[in-house]
């Protein structure tokens, strides 16, 4: 273990090697490491964002589904209401038509009955007058009793 000038040579080599590392080795590797760290950080951030986007899209889809279901339900309710209304209208129309028909028929029947009654009365009056003439042929002067007969005829009518 002798000391000699090797020491100074080693000292110089020490600084030359350190300078080489500082200049040519350290910066590129550190740069690569930093870039990779940034890439990884970016990747993680992108993954987080994608996850959030997915969650939002799912929420939106659920919302849309709910809205569509509501709209469909509303539409069906409207249709049912309209159908019920149509049926009601048809029913009341039918009732009206039936009532009208019945009224017309009843009116016609009443008129016919009236006519029949009048005809019957005419015939009864004529029959009564004829019968009375036959009974009173001789006693009654048609001319004298014309007014009486006319009255009777009127009353029987």
């Amino acid at each position: 273990m002798n000391l000699n000038a090797t020491l100074f040579a080693q000292l110089a080599v020490f600084f030359i090697l350190a300078w080489f590392t500082m200049t040519f080795v350290w910066p590129p590797i550190v740069k690569a490491l930093d870039e990779r760290a940034k890439k990884i950080a970016d990747g993680l951030a992108a993954a987080d964002k994608a996850k959030m986007d997915l969650a939002n899209a799912e929420k939106k889809a659920v919302d849309e589904m709910r809205k569509a279901r509501e709209a469909a339900a509303e539409l069906r309710a409207g249709a049912e209401r309209q159908a019920a209304q149509l049926i009601d209208e048809a029913r009341s129309e039918a009732a009206r038509v039936i009532a009208q028909a019945r009224e017309a028929a009843e009116g016609e029947a009443g008129a016919a009955m009236q006519r029949a009654k009048e005809a019957l009365r005419e015939q009864v009056a004529a029959l009564a007058v004829t019968g009375a003439e036959r009974i009173l042929r001789r006693e009654i002067n048609a001319n004298v009793h014309a007014e009486l007969l006319a009255n009777l005829h009127q009353e029987l009518k």
């Binding site: 000391l3 090797t6 020491l7 080693q10 000292l11 600084f15």
Partner: peptide, 12 residues
Amino acid sequence: ADLNGTLGMSIG
């Protein structure tokens, strides 16, 4: 294993 070598570095 040479004192010159190690002392050279420690003096650095």
